[in-house]
């Protein structure tokens, strides 16, 4: 009797300890982000208050208005959105076609494997290594400070990811479906468009969302390739003002919150494929 009571008490204790530890982890994970959120809606008096005001302050939207109507963060936001959308579209189109060929055709000389590994290996270059030559190339082509240069560079950056992910998704679809469509008179591309792509839609959507996230978050290449306000993405715009001598913390935080919101929505929408995307398809999650 006593042994079981002890056991029960111990297991309920470990359960409490477990939830306590997880609660600590949650607090550590979100407290800093929450702090930025509060700074973005605090008046300057509340921002610099001591002790810090975590909860009791009177919120204001002044910093958001300042950042996006009187300063240029609105234009950075637009540039970021255009670059992310266009580069994702290009990478998805080019990458999906290549992935389909690599997943469905048996090429001679082990080319399927060799090509897909070669494509993957280009993803492994550290960004700073390609940043230096890309800067020089774009300078020679007079493409510095253009949105086009960023779109092109991000397309190449996301392409290996798209190919690798879509090969995985295509392989999961039964080959018989397109064969049936082709027997019914569809061409290869017709079968791809009418049968394969609709079935691969969840995978396509998840892959596209990952590309959007990567392009939206990318900083180093954008920093190197754009110096004028007209072509600046949101991360570069924020960075340029963080490192200046006098910092408007409320404006910075407001811009940070706006930069983070779409990413959080995107991330939640691909939760199911998150592990797969993060490990480039290695862990199916």
């Amino acid at each position: 009797m006593k042994a079981t009571a002890n056991h029960a008490r111990r297991s309920s204790l470990t359960r409490v300890a477990r939830y306590a530890l997880l609660a600590v982890a949650v607090c550590v994970a979100i407290a800093p982000v929450y702090w930025m959120l509060t700074i973005s809606v605090k008046t300057e008096v509340d921002q610099f208050a001591s002790p810090p005001r975590w909860f009791d302050f009177s919120p204001t939207l002044a910093h958001y208005i300042d950042a996006f109507s009187t300063r240029s963060f609105g234009s950075f936001l637009l540039t970021s959105a255009i670059v992310a959308a266009l580069s994702t579209l290009c990478a998805m189109t080019i990458g999906t076609l290549a992935a389909y060929a690599l997943a469905r055709f048996r090429l001679p000389a082990g080319l399927n494997k060799r090509l897909s590994l070669w494509i993957l290996s280009t993803r492994m270059f550290p960004p700073i290594v390609t940043a230096v030559p890309l800067f020089l190339m774009m300078r020679d082509l007079r493409l510095l400070n253009t949105i086009g240069s960023l779109v092109v560079v991000y397309t190449a950056f996301n392409l290996p990811f798209v190919v690798w992910m879509m090969i995985g998704f295509f392989r999961e679809l039964p080959r018989e479906l397109e064969e049936a469509a082709m027997v019914d008179g569809d061409s290869r591309l017709g079968a791809l468009r009418r049968v394969v792509l609709p079935l691969a839609a969840p995978g396509l959507a998840a892959t596209a969302v990952f590309c959007l996230i990567v392009s939206w978050n990318e900083f180093l290449l954008a920093l190197v390739l754009t110096q004028t306000e007209a072509a600046m993405t949101l991360p570069v715009g924020i960075a340029g003002r963080v490192t200046q001598y006098e910092i408007k913390w409320g404006v910075m935080s407001a811009a940070g919150v706006v930069a983070m919101m779409p990413i959080l929505v995107f991330a939640l929408s691909v939760q199911k494929y998150l592990v797969r995307g993060l490990s480039l398809g290695a862990v199916k999650g």
């Binding site: 939206w216 978050n217 900083f219 949101l234 924020i238 963080v242 910075m252 935080s253 983070m260 990413i263």
Partner: peptide
Amino acid sequence: MLPPVVVGV
């Protein structure tokens, strides 16, 4: 998932 720049801020 946060943009690295936002992590910096």
